[in-house]
Amino acid sequence: MSFRTPTRAAALVAAAALVLTACGDDDDTQSGGGDGGSASSSGSFPVTIETAFGDVTIDEEPTRVVALGWSDAETALALGVEPVGATDWLGVGGDDGLGDWVEVTYAEDPELVDTLEPSAEAIAALEPDLILDTRSDGTQERYDLLSRIAPTIGQPEGVGPYQTTWQQQLELVGRALGRAEEAGQLQADLEQRIADAEAGHPEFAGVEVAVAAYTSEGFGAYVRGDGRVDFMEALGFVNAPAVQAEAGSNFFIPVSDEQVSLLDSGLTVVFPISVEVGDITGNPLWGTLASVRENRAIVLEDPNLANAFSAASVAGITYALDSAVPLFATALAAG
């Protein structure tokens, strides 16, 4: 594996709304290159994994992994395994589908397949012995399509579309790859970093936060079960009750022009999806929020940060801890 120099990522695409650091050790986790495997495995096979679609048994260590779910590829990379096929959920472009918040990259780029409606023919041509699809729309139809090609690891039982947490994703992928021990260590390390950030910012405790996106269709807000909200609450914030009260089965609620006051909170965080930052800051409705007038609102202008914040992965959360948490603290101090 190699390490990339961060640059600005391309703007988020509408697929990020949908309804709307991974830090692999270069010395210790050398990948197997083009075969998608890894040099060593801490797990034993066969292994049986419980999913929303029933138990899935993997007889031996996978060597050709196709990672289709949101952040599945970067999670595998964090564990030292290079998928031979992957998707580009956030439309970052390039040959590997990875955002610039991911430090670890491929020795050999994967074959990129369509994100929302992956081609069964394209996947089968890669001859996978494991398909990762832990965070997607999670339909039975999608699972049936993929599982006919290779053993497929979908979301956990009881988890809604796109609502697999980073911890659940890490556990599922780690077990499937025979890297459970490494996954556990990554989880413990990141949870400690989050706890340290929370302890270092006692001013976050109990502050209500509204997390929103702005698209060509207007504003929308996120509720519990979405990785962005879960990240904020792990830092001590509380998702805005007015927003949470509108929650249904999805992780994202549309906010009409008449409802924009829902976004007025102790802290308001918003980012653009397939629109310009000026479409937010120049919107007269934005200026009606007290949080905006009192400088307690943040627009995530850097696409790389907005992407990392949305990725809800080890790498994305690590980047957000370093880059977004100081913005939150500054906004609260200013307000």
Rank of each mutant, 00 (worst) to 15 (best):
M232Q: 13
E121A: 14
G93M: 07
S274E: 14
G80E: 09
A122W: 02
L77V: 14
A183S: 12
T152R: 02
V65Q: 00
T87G: 07
V56W: 05
V19T: 11
I253P: 11
A290R: 15
V92Y: 05
W101I: 01
D114A: 15
E141Y: 05
V81Y: 10
S2T: 12
L186S: 07
F53K: 11
S147Y: 06
G200M: 00
P272S: 03
N307W: 01
E74M: 07
V92G: 10
E61K: 12
E233N: 10
T134Y: 09
G174L: 10
G178E: 06
L90P: 03
P254W: 08
Q192E: 11
I194M: 07
Q192K: 12
L186T: 09
A297C: 15
E61M: 15
A10I: 03
T215F: 00
A324L: 15
D59T: 13
A320F: 00
T215P: 08
I131S: 09
G178R: 08
D137K: 13
W101D: 13
Q140Y: 02
A15R: 11
E82P: 12
T63G: 12
D133S: 08
M1K: 08
G248R: 11
S147D: 14
S42T: 13
D279Y: 05
E198Y: 03
R193N: 09
D100V: 03
G36D: 10
E127Q: 11
E108M: 04
V277A: 12
R228L: 10
T63S: 15
S38Q: 14
G97E: 03
L267W: 01
T48K: 07
N295R: 15
G94D: 13
A14G: 08
D230I: 08
T139I: 13
Q187G: 09
G97S: 06
L332I: 03
V84K: 01
V56G: 02
L285R: 05
P284R: 01
A11S: 15
A122E: 15
L332F: 00
Y162L: 14
Q140I: 11
G160F: 02
G43N: 06
F3P: 02
I149W: 00
R135Y: 05
A205H: 04
E121K: 02
Q155G: 04
A234L: 12
L146A: 01
P303N: 13
G69N: 09
R179V: 03
